[in-house]
Amino acid sequence: MDISLFYFADDASGDDRGRYDLLLDGARFADEAGLTAVWTPERHFHRFGGLYSNSAITGAAVASVTKRIGVRAGSVVLPLHDPIRVAEEWSMVDNLSDGRAAVAFASGWHAVDFLLHPDPTRAYADRRALLAEHVEVVRALWAGNSITRTDGSGGTSTVRIFPTPVQPELPFWITSSGNPETFRTAGRLGGNLLTHVLGQRPAVLARNIGVYRDALRAAHGPDARGHVTLMLHTYLGTSDDQVLEEVREPFSRYLASSLDLTTRSGPTTEGIDEVSEADAEALVRRAFDRYSRESGLFGSLATAHRAVSAFAEAGVDEIACLVDFGVDRKSVLRGMDHLGELVADLR
């Protein structure tokens, strides 16, 4: 099992200085402790995840303070962007990191994000088809191929990207929140898979991974297996009770912020006022109880080993540990020492 770091902060502190200290300190630690990668997402227009509006920029920052660890986007919302620009940006990150870049691509889920697109309604409606189409464009450009487009004069120009990437082929993932069709798409495209357990109980996760690997083998041969990365909220300590006491308040606030985002994720916010404060608090309590039992990596090193074994049985190859959910920075870094012990044990 590979162990990585994943960032998706709720920027609720109000502090306008040092917002990326935990990202960079964690990246330095992960690089030295033998972790596999550092993942940063793309999010827009909300404090939940809003520190990370451009994963190529945070990826370049991570590349500048590390020497060996993978630098990964988790994820680029590809239908929002021109795929030529995405290929250019990540080729720069690949050069800055000397060939350590990788990208997870996502179709997008929040309608508000699509105001960034020149034709937002169409792009949002067609986002899954655009994802598959744009992935192929990025991969072709990365491999050194050219693409022809209409230019500013009304004529056509054929272009390729510069700088040329260090890696001859871009390692890529497809992100799925639990829709089996997206798992199937990832397999068909020959990509790796990035997922989470927000909407998937362990049995559903295992079944969806089976869907992914069946599609992968059907499209790319019987030996194709791919690589499944699972994002898990993570905090390790000396005992389960100590960890739960430390994370209960900050993680509950984090879940509340997530609830506010997800209830406003569609094309309309009609009915949002029907979710009362008491209902929201009850949802957060239930979510915390479930996460602490089966959907996070919370507790002692022994508890972490049991969780890792269970997810390995489900077909997971890598756990991307989301660490920036509101616990103070010093405590998070202290908890990373236990994460380093876990990595050492798994070698």
Rank of each mutant, 00 (worst) to 15 (best):
I209M: 01
S75W: 03
T121G: 14
S258L: 12
L255P: 09
D151S: 10
V204Q: 15
I84F: 13
A256W: 09
F325R: 08
A30H: 03
F162P: 00
T58V: 13
S176A: 15
S97N: 05
A215Y: 01
Y20V: 10
R201C: 00
R19G: 15
T268C: 12
A9G: 12
S265V: 10
D240A: 09
D2T: 00
V228H: 01
F172Y: 10
D260C: 02
G50S: 00
E313N: 05
P267A: 14
Y291N: 08
P222F: 04
V308E: 03
T238E: 15
V323Y: 07
T262M: 11
F6R: 07
L130N: 06
T150D: 14
N95D: 02
G155S: 13
L194N: 06
V332A: 12
H196K: 01
E42M: 10
R47W: 05
S176M: 08
I57H: 13
S265L: 07
F311V: 09
V38A: 05
L23R: 00
V316K: 02
L259S: 11
A304H: 10
L230N: 02
V247Y: 05
E318S: 12
W142Y: 06
L333V: 00
D151P: 03
F45K: 05
Y52S: 08
H110K: 11
A218K: 02
W173V: 01
R100H: 09
T121K: 15
D126V: 01
R68N: 14
E181G: 12
H81E: 04
D16K: 06
R127H: 00
S258P: 00
G226S: 08
L301N: 06
F288R: 09
N192V: 02
A302F: 01
S258I: 05
I174W: 01
E277R: 08
L346V: 01
V316E: 04
R85E: 13
A33C: 11
D260A: 07
E318D: 14
L232P: 04
A186I: 07
D324E: 12
T175L: 07
L297A: 09
L22K: 12
S257Q: 09
D337L: 13
V243G: 00
N95Q: 13
E277W: 00
L346D: 05
N192Q: 07
V343F: 06
T234L: 09
P120S: 02
R47V: 07
L322G: 10
F8W: 14
G144R: 13
L5E: 04
G34E: 05
A219H: 12
G199H: 12
H233I: 07
R68W: 01
H305E: 15
Y291P: 02
G178Q: 00
N54M: 13
T182P: 01
R213N: 04
E277T: 14
Y20D: 06
V65L: 10
A111C: 03
S146H: 10
P79V: 10
E246V: 15
A27W: 11
R122P: 00
D289L: 12
L116K: 09
A56T: 03
D113S: 12
T40M: 00
A104T: 11
S265N: 11
L5M: 03
D151Y: 02
F251L: 14
K67H: 10
N208F: 06
H117T: 11
V204W: 07
Y7V: 11
H134Y: 02
L216E: 07
S55E: 00
S13T: 15
Y7M: 00
A101T: 07
E274K: 08
G18L: 02
R188H: 08
E294N: 05
D25P: 01
A37L: 04
F162Q: 10
R139S: 13
